[in-house]
Write a protein that binds this DNA or RNA. Structure first.
Lengths: 178, 178
DNA sequence: CTTAACCCTTAAACTACATTAAGGGTATTT
DNA sequence: AAATACCCTTAATGTAGTTTAAGGGTTAAG
C-alpha cells in the first residue's frame, strides 16, 4: 500500500481500549466493525443449546477479527467476540470499509487476501477437526500457536480443541510422561 | 457485471467434460484452476493417515470449487477434488484470474464476495461440527442440501458428517421410527 | 451370464471422550 | 484479609460413535 492508501485507512480507524471480558460482539447483534488487534487477545465463539461455549478462533497482536457473515449481510450474529486479555484495537466501520473498497482498488485486493488467508486457516482447522484425535489436534495447536499454549487458560484451549478441560488435562499428563 | 466484463470472463473460461471418479485435483499437486460447476457434482476431501476420506464440501450446479490455499500460494494441495457424477465445468487459470483482477476492478469485488460466502459457509459448518451431535448435523445437512440427501450415496454423506456409514444407517433408522 | 465392485443394514464388542464429583490452588474483588 | 470466582487435576462412571463381521441388494464390467 502507498502513503495515500495508508493515510486513507488510518483516518478511518478508531482506537478503543478493551477490558478483559468485554465484548466486541454479542449474539443477536449485527456486527458493525472489522477489527484490527493491536495488542491483547480475543476469542470468537458460539454457544450451544446447553450453554457450552465453543471457540472458533483466537486473535492476537497484528490479526484481524470480525463476524464477516454478519458484517456483510447485516444479519444478527450467532457469535460472541470477547477479550481474554486487556486489549487495544483499531476498528473500521462497514461504511468506511466499503468506501475504501470503492475508491482504492488496492483495498479490495488487500482485504480479499486477508479473507482468503482466513479461509485457508479455517479449512485446515475443519479438516483437522474431523480427521484427527484430540491429542493430534492438541499437538498441532501447539505447533501452530506456540505462544498461545502458555498464554491462554486451558479451559479456553479445550474449548478450541472441542474437548472438555478434564480431558485436556488427561492428554497433557499422558503426553508429558512420554 | 457489464457486458464487457462478462465477455472478458467467458473468453477465459475453458469448458471440460469430466467423468465420474475423475479428479480435478489430487493431493500433492498445485491447484491451477478456479472451477465453475455447470452440471454434475464434485466432492473436495482430505485423506487421513489411516486412508479414510473426509469430505469437506460438495459442489453442484452453479457453484465454484477450488483449493483456494493451494491456488493462491502455489503450494502442493492436501486435498482431492473428484467428480461424484459425470459433470461439465468451466475453468479459469490463476493467471487469467489475476489478469481479470488487475484490469477489471469489479472482479476483485465479485470474487471477494464469492470467497466471503464460502468463508461464512465454512464457519457455520465448523461451529456445527464442534457443537452438534451427529443426528443434529444430519438434520441440518438435509435442511441445507435437500436435493443432495437423495442424490448422494450415504457413504459420501457420512464422510461429510464425520461419522461412519454404519452409524449414519443407525441414525436414519431411529429418525424414521419417530 | 457371471463375476466383481460397490452400497446398505444390523448387531455385538470396543474406545475416545463426556459427565459428575471432589479437593486444592491462585487470582480478583470486596 | 477475607471472600468469591476461576482454574487445574484426578478418578469413577456413562455414552456417542467406531470397529469388526456378516448377509443381502444393486450396478458395472468381463
Amino acid at each position: 500500500m502507498d502513503v495515500e492508501e495508508i493515510h486513507a485507512l488510518t483516518g478511518r480507524l478508531t482506537e478503543r481500549k478493551i477490558k478483559r471480558r468485554q465484548f466486541l460482539l454479542q449474539e443477536g447483534d449485527v456486527c458493525k466493525y472489522f477489527t484490527y488487534v493491536q495488542s491483547g487477545c480475543f476469542k470468537i465463539y458460539g454457544v450451544d443449546d446447553k450453554g457450552v461455549e465453543h471457540n472458533l478462533a483466537f486473535a492476537t497482536e497484528d490479526d484481524w477479527i470480525s463476524d464477516i457473515g454478519s458484517l456483510h449481510k447485516e444479519q444478527p450474529s450467532k457469535l460472541f467476540i470477547e477479550a481474554i486479555e486487556p486489549s487495544v484495537v483499531l476498528q473500521i466501520s462497514k461504511g468506511d470499509l466499503w468506501y475504501l473498497y470503492t475508491n482504492y482498488p488496492k483495498f479490495d485486493r488487500n482485504f480479499r487476501v486477508i479473507i482468503e488467508n482466513k479461509y485457508i486457516e479455517l479449512q485446515e482447522r475443519l479438516l483437522q477437526t474431523v480427521s484427527a484425535t484430540a491429542l493430534e489436534r492438541y499437538e498441532s495447536f501447539i505447533n501452530q500457536y506456540p505462544h498461545l499454549a502458555n498464554r491462554l487458560p486451558n479451559t479456553q484451549i479445550a474449548s478450541y480443541l472441542g474437548i472438555t478441560p478434564e480431558f485436556l488435562s488427561k492428554i497433557k499428563n499422558e503426553r508429558f510422561k512420554k
